[in-house]
Amino acid sequence: MGCFHSTASKQFPGHEDPVILASQTAFSVSEVEALFELYKSISSSVIDDGLINKEEFQLALFKNRKKENLFANRIFELFDVKKKGVIDFGDFVKSLSVFHPNAPHEDKIDFSFKLYDLDGTGFIERQEVKQMLIALLCESGMKLADETVEIILDKTFLEADVNQDGKIDKSEWQNFVRQNPSLLKIMTLPYLRDITTTFPSFVFHSEVDE
């Protein structure tokens, strides 16, 4: 195991053993190694320091480093598990694992709750939902009157905010998602089933036979 892992650890700060990462995630060891090929390419796209900064993250996602977006920023913050302003390989694999088709449903619910709880208070507040709606309208070029936005918010909070305290807590979110399973569609990436074929070069560096 030694050579690949120790070399990668020197070049890639925060690099974790693929066998351990596989045991903690929905990925096999080969899939973790294939993800490392993707990670190497993203983390060297602007600054070759073995870490993914926000610019590299956005460049990989949108092919455009200048795009400033509320949702992209929030996803970066959630991938930055250790809150260092950069994403290391362990963060990358553990975060992407939530999007694996085989990842536990509860993990997807938790991640989506954190995603929409913009300020991390443990509640999705009406003001946050309005902010996200406005961001979506700006991004899509869709125009809705403020009155219509308020009607959508009223309807959403009537359904989701069961105790009607003006904010959605974790348990209310779990119930709401159960009633509206399509809300979790963004939490599954079918591509993650095929990463070993998307990044076949991992076999040249692989340390395991699977």
């Binding site: 993203i42 996602l61 992407l96 961001a135 991004e139 219509t148 309807k155 809300l183 990463i195």
Partner: peptide, 29 residues
Amino acid sequence: KNPDSPTLINAFQLIGMSSCLDLSGFFEK
């Protein structure tokens, strides 16, 4: 009622339409 009326859609269904919440860009070369 118009079935396409946005008032029949909940806020999170609309928010989920954001292309910035789609991580498939990582895998598109």
